[in-house]
Design a binder for these strands. Sequence first.
DNA 1: GTTTTATCTGGTACCGTTTACTATTCCGCT
DNA 2: AGCGGAATAGTAAACGGTACCAGATAAAAC
Lengths: 340, 340
Amino acid sequence: MNIREVAKKARVSTATVSRVINGSAPVSEDTAARVRQVIQQLNFYPNTHARTLGSGRSRMYGLIISDITNPFFPELVKSFEDIAVEHGQEVIVANTDYQPKRMETCVRRMLERKVDGVAIMTSEMEMGLVEMLSLRGIPMVFLDTGVVGPRCSNIEIDYSGGIDQAIEHLAALGHRRISFITGPMELKSVRTRYEAFRKSMERKGIPFSQELVRHGNHRIDGGQAAMGQLLQLAERPTAVVASNDLTAIGAMGTIHEAGLDVPKDISIIGYDDLEISNFTQPPLTTIRVSRSELATRAFTALFAASHKGESQGIAYKIKVNLIIRQTTGIARTSKKQPKG
Amino acid sequence: MNIREVAKKARVSTATVSRVINGSAPVSEDTAARVRQVIQQLNFYPNTHARTLGSGRSRMYGLIISDITNPFFPELVKSFEDIAVEHGQEVIVANTDYQPKRMETCVRRMLERKVDGVAIMTSEMEMGLVEMLSLRGIPMVFLDTGVVGPRCSNIEIDYSGGIDQAIEHLAALGHRRISFITGPMELKSVRTRYEAFRKSMERKGIPFSQELVRHGNHRIDGGQAAMGQLLQLAERPTAVVASNDLTAIGAMGTIHEAGLDVPKDISIIGYDDLEISNFTQPPLTTIRVSRSELATRAFTALFAASHKGESQGIAYKIKVNLIIRQTTGIARTSKKQPKG
DNA sequence: GTTTTATCTGGTACCGTTTACTATTCCGCT
DNA sequence: AGCGGAATAGTAAACGGTACCAGATAAAAC
């Protein structure tokens, strides 16, 4: 079943069938109707590979993420796919598994499949790879790299703004001893958050001490471990800001196990606002990063470059906002430590 | 950059280059080395679309799931992808969003992309579509449909076995008043679990009453709502079995909000064993369905059919097992109801 | 020494579209 | 009537590989 059969049955040339399918050139209403009917009747659908080969455009975008298993990503993937399908594009996704090295495999897969553009939504990057794509004129969009150039857009998440809101909120509740649990420090976005935390504390005139900082891995177990260490402190924090929600969830678990209460003994703030964060016990106060906005921006940038001939990249900035739920409360006056 | 350029530079024919790339026919070590070097040097990688068009095989499998946002699926997707890549295949995934109608779009996308096989890991099905695939000789593998035929395999999850283990466990703890919260009853797998629950109760000689059954939607909010209703009961259950983990998590939330304790007042058992279920407060007792086993089986079935010419489908059965954590405990003697 | 066989290589017809480039028809206009 | 130009439709050359067929060479068998 191919375009030739359709053409024969509709008594037209393959070119005309192609024109009807793509609306790429005017076809008289009579012929068009006839062709459409045959297509329907034969249940014909064009072979995308042949299409790509012939036209040079695959109608596909690549989406590179760190790990589909990290709850931050599925929502992003879904939003991106939805909007893509709406615009007649397909999406192929690839995972880097947090390894910058695997990024190469991902990019290569994108190139082999001749994507019309690629959204790189991971923090771990290899700048050399940008070149591979850029060289071939493939539109790109990044997260937090800051690079914007021809066919290369960037989306910047206002991490600092979020941290500011968090510190502000905690300060208003009387917290002065605030911990921070980071993610893997290799990631730029993690360092950004950490730096933002320091500066924000400084700005608020809250004493910042290295002893209140612990490193996690952006997974639940990392949060648990880090919180474990913080609870060992002679004077433990009254509030903890975590680099992401999973870390915060892990921290909460450890606090509970230690027989302490959130938020009575310790307040917690996460980052991301995963869907489950609304259903933890108690529901997590967190800084929301809208995945759908992220997806929309990424798609828009790509679409502008690949379909509207927009050659200059765009620099977006995404605002985040603090969602106050029930893991933050008035600072416990530290005069009495149940566990000292 | 194409195979012709490589051929020219290596002073061989395109056929030879193709042979070197695919190892499809013997090539002398000298020429092969030369070709490989040129490929390296030019950083050449073949165009998959042209490859597919020429050979008729796309080296891609389709994976149809309900919703990537449902935490059950990402792990499945990942396992499936990993094993596929290991075998030189790629994966394209499509979501049905739980709508049987959208299944058609998914299947069509698979056909357009000429996949070498498709794994349909959703419960919502449209048997007519099987025909579309079957007609074109595309290998398939299903979840819980029971259909096995030429190039059509099936994986059956032993839902009943899991429910049996759950009821057994609860009975041993002295529970006699056990609730069940279902998922959307349109799904076969949901009905199977429900039926299994009834039968298992009967077998154990525990009185089963319709009033103890509530319907959820396999999402957290459904579990919350259903649990809310159960708490209204004059005599409320001492244990609840949920059709999946999300439902169980929702139910737990409602119980907490009502000022009751899990498992002291009410025991809870989920189904699936999501990653987060290990980190709820308290960690959820649940019936584990191994996603990686599911993925492996699905892939194996497809691979056997598409690469080993195995024409007869395979019927797999996957065992599940109860993971006892901390949401189940000794049944509270119902003499006193705090909220009556 | 000739035939057979195996190994290696080149030539080229596909695969199923798209897209120049042409060819035809039908207008309105001078 | 003759002409220019839309509007339609057809022809055929790409696109970048694969795979079949055939030729050439070398090794093996007789």
